[in-house]
Design a binder for these strands. Structure first.
Lengths: 193, 193, 193, 193
DNA sequence: ACTATCGGGACGACCCGTTTTT
DNA sequence: AAAAACGGGTCGTCCCGATAGT
């Protein structure tokens, strides 16, 4: 059997990067195809749903990647507060290395498209939810009551997302590190750390 | 002086609404002009810098409006924590009333344009900073040390911004109210409330 | 290979006519597309360089056509002077038949765009040069020293180009025929005709 | 009485320069007004006929200036052939000094607008005619029969105009000087020089 | 299965020459 | 004499489908 083309995953990954930098509407199919090196002729073969489908899959993929990173950090940290500190440091570094272009792979498109594409919005929602659920389950494991755990997890994720927004606007990642500190303290207090 | 038209402020206000709903790239000049009822021919007379200038002014205007709202809430609340609760409630209501279309007038464009327009990015930064400064000054008035006050203010703003992102993705404003609670508690603890 | 369209050559030919009548800036893409019947959707597929590329190709094509006409006249005339007379008559007739709209397919755009587009300028230069070279080579064949031949050929081309300018301004082709006469006499004297 | 504004003549002169460089359609009113420093608001006070009137006057003015230059050269030269040599040198120098942007103030617009504006076309025609008449009258003074004189004068003007076209296309003024030589020789032969 | 060529039609921002008002 | 305001047009680009070849 002939080897399947890798045009599909390449397009998805290129899209994920472009979307978080400049959003959905500003990202043209041409740019995606050129960047990823994928052929133009077969785009609608791979993505019958067009640009919207591509964006949806890119958000899903980006959400998975972040979840993996969070999972790894959670596994390697003694407390959930420590995990949040490390995760924030990871994000701050990525922001700085990319000259403040790459922050969260979801938020930019989520805000822009929430009112315009339900499939994109749902992919964004699922991504956020998966991060919250992962963090909350760790908190539960650490002894936090289930209801409290969910709110705390949401709070941590929201704090980081909000910090990412302010950091990109100010071109300064300091706020990410600064806010991770009290958030981590709250988490550790809740888990009796 | 020749007669003055109100096309300028009308265009700015219409732009502010459209930008937070769908972002910069997806918002056409035509749509702005139609919505605001402003004539097309004099657009570049009023905004020589084109769409970018218009967006910059819209962010500045949106930032002012939010600051006014925050100011009013701060004035009417006994504690800063109470003010955050009320402000969150305001945002949650607006989100629901607008069918989850109108959240923060800054964040959508800030994320989309941070890497693409410095003037837009700076306007976003200035808006966020003005909110943080306002809240921080209240905390200082309430006895919080200046350095702590700034971080707490940033945290509160970031929490709300992050909550707004998740709320639009999930089409559920509950998270805004849910996260305002612990954030307010932290603030009141800091001010000895 | 997928099916081939004739939209490309059709657009080029229509452009050539429009450009000599009204120049580059006054000729809209829409007008070109309408005139030629070429579809708009594939315009930037056929001409990625846009209007400038189209104009460049139209000049090249127009230059070829004139060269062919000159070649034919040169082949059918006993002396080079006689060829110049006949060629001038051809141009005068075309001018009159087109109600003084179609003169030289190169000159209008050459003057307008020489300082604005190097690719267009070079196409114009190449066209003129090809005519000069063709006429000069005939003169050399007729016994004129190479250096003299080139100047004489340039003179003849310049005389006709200049006459075309004056003729369009005065809406009278008489000057073309009038100036061909002494120019032909000079050529025939040089070739010992 | 208050001094009359000099906006009018300044606009005309600026237009003359811009028109020969880039033609009518490519020259915007804005550019003209900015270049000349004339205020925009009073443009239609000075030129009720709009852009077309301005261009017409610019051609007339440009035609006068060239006629003056030709007149001066004619006065200072022993033979009409010598005058043509010197006039050609003048034009070659101006072309080179302006980096091949300024050639003939009439030809560019004449070709572009002959079919589009009768008033512009007539101004161009009058300019050319005035040059021909001036040169022809000198030839008559030098003893050339009136009918021959007119053709010779047209030939000289056409040669220079044609040379100017080729020179701008090739970015090389050599052809102007090269063609002035045989043209001058013909003139001097006709006047018994 | 996969990819290239081509067509469609709407829309993008920007800029044009002009008129109205003071 | 000039500032303010205007309607219409520019080229370029968009995402997508239809069709045909490898």
């Amino acid at each position: 059997m002939p080897r399947r083309s890798d045009a599909r995953p390449r397009a998805i990954r290129a899209t994920s990067v472009l979307l978080q930098r400049q959003g959905y509407a500003a990202t043209g199919l041409e740019e995606i195809l050129t960047t990823s090196g994928a052929p133009k002729g077969s785009f609608y073969f791979h993505f019958p749903g067009g640009k919207e489908q591509l964006a949806t899959e890119a958000l899903t993929e980006g959400g998975h990647a972040v979840r993996e990173a969070l999972h790894a950090v959670l596994d390697g940290a003694a407390t959930s507060g420590e995990a949040v500190r490390r995760f924030a440091e990871l994000e701050a570094r990525q922001l700085e290395r990319s000259r403040f272009e790459r922050g969260c792979p979801i938020a930019t498109v989520a805000l822009e498209m929430a009112s315009r594409s339900d499939s994109v919005r749902r992919a964004a929602d699922a991504a956020f939810e998966s991060w919250v659920a992962l963090l909350a389950s760790r908190l539960v494991d650490d002894g936090v009551p289930r209801a409290d755990a969910r709110v705390l997890a949401q709070w941590a994720i929201a704090t980081l997302e909000g910090a990412l927004v302010l950091a990109r606007a100010s071109r300064d990642a300091a706020i990410i590190r600064a806010l991770a500190e009290p958030m981590a303290t709250v988490l550790d207090a809740a888990t009796g750390g």
